[in-house]
Computed example of a mutant assay.
Amino acid sequence: MQARRFDLIAFDWDGTLFDSTAIITRCIQEAVRDVGGTVPTDTAASFVIGMALPQALAHAAPDVPPERYPDLAARYRVHYMQHQNDIVLFSGVLELLRALKQQQILLAVATGKSRRGLDEALRVVELQGLFDSSRTADETAGKPHPRMLNELMREFDVAPGRTLMVGDTTHDLQMALNAGCPSVGVGYGAHPHGEFAALQPLFVAHSVRELHDWLLAPG
């Protein structure tokens, strides 16, 4: 059976493939506390997930002066490193990715993580060979700028209409809209799915099983 027809599917990482939202939220809060800023609420801290780290931390801690941003980022990394091995793939993600590969669909990652952070994560889990390419926030523009998707489309010579972005935040869906690509939102990650409608996703999946069934449905 032929899957729904996309030539390239780009996935966000945290909150879409990896069950990491709660840990990242806590790490942001602890980093802000360490540098003496006003600790953001869970909602405010989780909102910035998916952004490039400097942009995310500045947004989460508006009362921290810019000269303290390097310290803030360093403290975040300390807290995150203490928990990185606690982060796991959502159940069903490996099966989904393998099924898409069997359909000869190109798979990519478009993430707010750093290149170092993504590469470390790829070594921890059994994802080697499943992704054809990836883009990280420190090597291109952060979300919702469309550069990540534009670069991936150029790399594989795939048109926007044949490229799908899958993500759990409004930053992901706005990036897809900015790039002229369709998107799918997942409602089990960082942002409430009620915020997705204005960004015109083709579908909102509330579980990996729903995402699997929609992506593998006949096109």
Rank of each mutant, 00 (worst) to 15 (best):
F196E: 05
G180A: 02
R209D: 01
A108V: 02
D12R: 06
H206R: 06
M81V: 04
L106N: 04
T140L: 15
G112Q: 12
E126I: 07
R209C: 00
L100V: 05
A198P: 10
H206P: 00
D138P: 12
A22T: 07
F156V: 10
A159F: 01
E195F: 07
E126S: 15
R135Y: 09
E139S: 13
S46D: 04
Y188T: 06
H171Q: 09
A31Q: 12
A52G: 15
L107R: 04
T169E: 03
Q84G: 00
P66C: 02
D34H: 09
V208Q: 06
G117R: 02
A3Y: 00
A45N: 11
A44V: 10
G180N: 02
P182T: 00
E120M: 08
F131Q: 04
H83N: 06
F203W: 07
R4H: 11
Q102R: 15
T43M: 09
V32I: 14
A137V: 12
A22N: 03
F90H: 09
A56P: 12
R116Y: 11
Q29V: 07
R209G: 00
T169S: 15
R75M: 06
P218S: 11
R162D: 05
L164E: 03
P201R: 09
G142P: 12
E210M: 13
A45C: 11
V64F: 12
M165L: 11
Q102T: 14
L89I: 07
V186S: 03
H171C: 05
D34Q: 10
V186Y: 04
A58Y: 09
P160D: 03
L127Y: 09
Q174C: 12
R154C: 03
V186L: 00
L177R: 14
P70R: 02
H206T: 03
D71M: 05
L53R: 07
K101E: 09
A10E: 02
V88H: 14
A60T: 13
G219W: 13
L130N: 15
V35K: 08
V125N: 13
E67L: 00
V109F: 12
T140E: 15
A58T: 15
S134I: 02
Q55F: 03
Q84L: 08
L72P: 10
S133F: 10
Q82L: 14
L130H: 14
D19E: 07
C181K: 08
H206V: 01
L152Y: 11
D119M: 12
T111A: 08
F47E: 10
T25G: 15
V88K: 09
I24A: 01
A159R: 08
F18K: 11
A190M: 07
F203V: 04
P201S: 10
D86K: 10
L199A: 11
V109A: 14
S114M: 07
L149H: 09
S134D: 10
L53H: 08
